[in-house]
């Protein structure tokens, strides 16, 4: 067992097994032994009953209401956009779309539809976005206090990047705030799927820092998708 509960002591042996009997996952032979022990031990029986009450209390879901559907739609938009962005460079297999569901009107939007909707909806007016990009370039705090059109551009060649999709209707002012908050510049885009690429300058901008900034951007209402470039699909989550 472990340093706290020794199998040599029947009470400690029981204590180690009670939680797993309470939740119904203790294997049969162990459960038989525990049942026999509990029948003759008032102290362990009391512990068992206490754990039963704790188990029942923790079974209750509480008053929190979780709205799954809006989150799901956001996820599928993120997936759809990433896929479309990749599809621009390589032929990808088609996605099996969702079929309409009779009792869930909000669920009817097909995945392909969601992606197309995104592509159509995330339209920032070219002129406005162009201005926003220029305006942000112009306020690079690492450069001189003012710049001209002939000032040298900062180099993004080796710096980490983020791919991003903005919400439809985002104003130039809103865009400026977002970029300023992330310390980012638009260095490419939009693609056919309205994906922009953000660059960062400065030696302190490591991939980890950029990952944090991408996560912060994802939390903004005006951002539908933001991922460090090349990160999709490389999650490394201990997959079997």
């Amino acid at each position: 067992m472990n340093s706290e509960l020794s199998d040599a002591d029947p009470h400690q042996r029981a204590a180690a097994r009670i939680p797993w009997h309470v939740n119904g996952t203790l294997e049969a032979s162990e459960a038989s032994w525990l049942t026999m022990h509990l029948e003759g031990c008032a102290s362990c029986r009391s512990d068992y009953e206490a754990q039963g009450r704790l188990f029942e209390a923790m079974q209750a879901d509480g008053s929190l209401v979780f709205a799954a559907e809006p989150s799901f739609q956001k996820l599928m938009a993120r997936i759809g956009d990433a896929r479309e962005a990749r599809a621009a460079g390589a032929g990808l297999a088609p996605i099996v779309p969702m079929v309409p569901m009779a009792h869930a009107p909000a669920k009817r939007r097909a995945f392909g539809g969601a992606a197309r909707w995104l592509a159509a909806a995330v339209i920032l007016e070219g002129l406005g976005l162009g201005y926003g990009a220029w305006a942000w370039h112009a306020r690079d705090t690492t450069a001189a206090s003012y710049v001209t059109l002939t000032s040298p551009e900062p180099s993004y060649r080796d710096s980490p990047r983020v791919r991003i999709v903005f919400r439809s209707g985002l104003s130039v002012q809103g865009l400026g705030v977002l970029l300023q908050g992330a310390g980012a510049h638009i260095i490419d885009g939009p693609t056919a799927a309205n994906v922009y690429t953000l660059g960062f300058t400065g030696s302190a901008v490591t991939p980890d820092v950029v990952a944090q900034r991408a996560a912060a951007l994802r939390g903004k209402a005006d951002v539908l998708f933001a991922e460090p470039q090349g990160e999709e699909g490389s999650a490394g989550d201990g997959l079997k």
């Binding site: 029948e39 029986r45 068992y48």
Partner: peptide
């Protein structure tokens, strides 16, 4: 020992 003999739902 009323509860120990009943396996709770896992």
């Amino acid at each position: 020992m009323h509860q120990a003999s009943e396996r709770r739902p896992g």
